[in-house]
Design a protein around this nucleic acid. Structure first.
Lengths: 190, 190, 190, 190
DNA sequence: TATGAATGAGCTTTCATTCAT
DNA sequence: GATGAATGAAAGCTCATTCAT
């Protein structure tokens, strides 16, 4: 009686958890553009339930991956420990980002699709990660380790693109390493 | 009886030309995944005609771009002129490849989509361009200019990916430059 | 024990009031076919509450407009003051009815939709207003002012129909005036 | 060989006929807003076929009723024979119009719905019938038989509205007669 | 051979209504 | 009693692909 609202919320939360788990599972096998029906079926709920919790697909994707995105964002500043090369820190952070993207079938593709339906998703990623990337990029540039003419969003987009279609035949991580290496300023004499 | 057959063949060829021109035009505006109907309409033929000439979309795309792919492939060896740095040659060739991809709306995306419908397309690209890329890569590696552990198909795939979604907001070419720069061996002392 | 019950009733009544006000407000902006959810939200209650109080939409609409319908019905007999032309009285009453309908977005349409879901609503309107209309109609007919072959429900339905879709482009009231004028018996010589 | 185009066209035409017949039949029972699926099923064709022939519902409705609308429009001027009262001619024409509307379940409603999806339909009706109505209206007004302050589109809208929901309980035609009678100028002495 | 009409799976989205809490 | 989460039927629309003419 004192907590009727909370009881509801607990239920709903449990359900949302189910939904997110189901979506995550379906995303793994069918990609983030899987039919709503499939996700609903997997969760054992009606489609309407998904629409109630996540009005747009972008909302659902964000919810599914929010924790990981936050963790990735949070990890950035910590890598800039004194005594570490900023360029190395950048590389490590990018590695975390690649860890994330590489396990999300189709996420990278959808992020670059330009489809306005995913604008929210896109914006969320940028808002959360670009500043972190910028921090590390600036540090490395200030230290004279890398070229200073690449904006964080460009780098992130490049990394995102390199992660499109990662599979057994194509190791995105290695390519990203090369890309990050390519940021280094050429030796003075070159 | 031999004449009519030949006449037909001439006709068919003319028709194929029309088809390819129309497809190319539509690809420019609507991307390589444009509805078959649109291409047929543009060519002034029925959709069945397209299916007859090009059973799969991949076949059509290949036909549309074959000349350019061939030209790109042919250009590779010529860049390895004596007196030129092989790494520079590689960079120039990659540049040609980027020229090609960047003007084909959606081609890069489709190339990496993993959709089996495009396997033929993918295979054609690899068959034609990977050897060339390998030649330049080997030359640069042998010259000790670049790391030797990256396979040509990996590099091409990376470049292809970087070209996905090229637009005003994102200059794929710059990212590719960084990637190619990243191939360079670190200075001996590093 | 008797007290709590009464308290409940007071509460319930207050709640019903809230519901009706909310419904009325939503009807104004979204029409009488507005989603139940919207009405519930506006009232700050759950949808179930609406269904409890008003099992069908017709019940809700009736409740919302009951006062006005009653007022309209009550106004009829009063217009039949001695010394007034019964036809004029009829016209004035119809005018009141039009006042009512014209401010209820979609009510007129729903009244004539034939949808059995609104049968109750329809029946209520007829039960309440037809007798009044009949009274005025009979008076005018008895006075020899108008034709006597039109049943009250026919006239009301006609007026109701003319009020469908009233807006800036279409002045229902004028058409209703014409209709009422059309009831007049032709001059003897015609 | 000389008429391949024509052969096709004959086929398509036959099919279109089937479609129109099916649509007409479904319109009778379910109204002009019947699901596309139902119409397709009735015609024994896929839904796509309907969309091919009639991209919007308005197109389909227009096609279904075009002949009758045209006939109605054409009939107007002929009624203005010398020696006939223009007001009587107007009445006869309106009668034809009512004949048309009264047999089309839901058409009248949809015509007044304001839904932009039906703008084409609405426009077609207006374009075709308003001028005719105007002709007859003007003639009667010029002859001093009726009031001159009602625009043709107003009258048509009124008539259209009166025809909404015509059924056994409600004889739209009679109400329309009253409306048309109401146009008459009151006797001079009134 | 060429045509393009026909097919229909497949996806999205909305909302009335029910019912567990 | 009240709540509002869940359900799922309905409907719209698109396009790749087939196949009768």
């Amino acid at each position: 009686m004192t907590e009727p609202a909370r009881a509801k919320r607990a239920d709903a939360r449990r359900n949302e958890r189910t939904l997110l788990d189901a979506a995550a599972a379906v995303f793994v096998t069918s990609g983030v553009e899987a039919p709503v029906r499939d996700i609903a079926a997997r969760a054992g709920v009606g489609m309407g339930t998904i629409y109630r919790h996540f009005p747009t697909r972008a909302d659902l994707i964000i919810a599914v991956y929010r924790h990981q995105v936050e963790a990735c964002a949070d990890a950035g500043p910590a890598l800039l420990a004194p005594g570490t090369s900023p360029h190395a820190a950048l590389g490590q952070w990018i590695d975390l980002f690649v860890d994330f993207l590489v396990t999300k079938h189709g996420l990278a593709a959808v992020m670059q699709s330009g489809d306005p339906a995913f604008d929210t998703l896109h914006a969320y990623f940028l808002a959360r990660l670009v500043p972190v990337c910028g921090l590390l990029l600036d540090a490395a540039a200030s230290a004279g380790e890398i070229r200073a003419d690449l904006a964080p969003h460009e780098l992130m987009r490049g990394v995102g693109n390199l992660c499109v279609g990662n599979d057994d035949q194509y190791d995105a991580r290695r390519l990203v390493e090369v890309l990050v290496a390519g940021l280094r300023l050429p030796p003075a004499g070159a």
